[in-house]
Design a protein around this nucleic acid. Structure first.
Lengths: 244, 244
DNA sequence: ACCTGAACACCGTTCAAGT
DNA sequence: ACCTGAACACCGTTCAAGT
């Protein structure tokens, strides 16, 4: 009845580092961070733990490889201005380039919510790994294209990177947390719950948070994300003279 | 010979949630995230796991309480302009207030490196918990003092918060990672290693990162952190008309 | 109400043995 | 060279039993 199970996943296919990483990403997407175990992985790949350890040093390396694979795919969609569309509209400005990179990461984190936490630990625990330079390079090129003087490249790129990863992670978290509250509790309802919780804080200790609580309720994630991005960009252009 | 062990830690002292959280923070500081286990905790507190579970629901709640305790202490040092020093110098501007809050978190993360990862997961997994509003409130008050119009409070405060936590976490990571390379390998040497690694990246794929690698070598963490903070602040003041 | 400590299910990792 | 799978040390958590 079933000569081939599922899609193209033939039973006996040579195990490889790529197949393992692929399975890890799938597992992370489906059951979250806590669902990625060597037992689940061996079951999915129909093998034993020893086989996996032949291709991968340990779980940390596997998580790093999974993170890098997803980030690489997210940043590869538009290789920074290769094809110029013949349609109308303004030509790609550096600002547009930055928004494209930022939204690429934003979407990737939204699609793979585990990415947020993983990127934070990745960037901190091993900035010499492949992930940090990959993100840094993509954001940095846009900073350079913006005409920022070279002496400020590091500061500007770092600031932008921290904002993008932090804000994107926060938004993805909203989506995930909403899911854990139950299938019928959607994002809007979740934001409403946070908003209400903030409104019920002590008026003496949290006047500002209470005042802003209502803005949480209706906000659009993408819109907010881009508004914050524009804010950081405004800081970059305000502090540095542009050329071109 | 020893009627009292150590300092003031009498043997039989009633177990309490505070004592448990205190021990957890100490354990995290001394042996890092992976060192906080219920076994180590029970040994340190001379009790059994059941006793701890009586005061704390589970490990996640314990980590949350430890995070909140440290953040609360970090933000409490200067309650946002209560005492005005009689000494000379410019009066506290809103910018100075923001720098004070930011440096408070910066120092806390440097002193408790586990805080960076913990804050990231905390803010994302439970924004309704006590940690998120605490940080948000403290940064937000300074944004309000800056004269930012109310409609932009959320965007500005969020952007600033994401930068501060991301950048501070990154810097703390530098310190920690340096430590893991061996006792005689200090921070400067670690930054040198990262810088060298970046210089050895593929010239075709990483022109920007290579060009900026040398800036990593000599940089001062605090200085860089404040430079990035000023950049975001410049964005806030550039986009919004100030009053006062 | 608060604490004890054995027990349970599960985890990452190792390794002698196979092909 | 690549894979198998039993075994090990360790983990978070539970719970009947004590005080």
């Amino acid at each position: 009845m079933a000569t081939r199970t599922g899609r193209s996943q033939r039973r006996t296919e040579a195990l490889s580092r790529e197949r393992i990483v692929e399975a890890a990403v799938a597992l992370l997407d489906e059951v979250g961070e806590s669902g990625l175990t060597f037992r689940a992985l061996t079951e999915r790949l129909a093998t034993g733990p020893g086989a996996i350890y032949w291709h991968v040093a340990n779980k940390d390396e596997l998580l790093g490889a999974a993170t890098d694979a997803v980030v690489a795919a997210a940043l590869a969609v538009e290789p920074a201005g290769t094809v110029e569309p013949a349609t109308a509209g303004p030509p790609d400005s550096p600002q547009d380039g930055i928004r494209a990179v930022a939204l690429g990461l934003f979407d990737a984190i939204e699609e793979h919510p585990w990415l947020a936490t993983q990127l934070a630990t990745q960037l901190s625990h091993s900035p010499w790994g492949p992930v940090a330079p990959r993100i840094f390079e993509n954001i940095g090129r846009q900073i350079r294209a913006l005409g920022v003087p070279e002496g400020s490249w590091f500061t500007a790129t770092s600031a932008l990177m921290h904002y993008v990863l932090g804000a994107a992670g926060q938004n993805a978290a909203n989506t995930v947390s909403a899911g854990t509250l139950g299938p019928d509790v959607d994002r809007a309802r979740f934001l409403d719950a946070v908003s209400t919780a903030w409104e019920e804080l002590d008026p003496d200790d949290y006047p500002f948070t209470r005042a802003v609580a209502n803005q949480v309720r209706g906000h659009d994630d993408r819109e907010q994300f881009l508004a914050g991005l524009d804010l950081v960009l405004a800081g970059v252009t305000a502090l540095h003279p542009m050329n071109g």
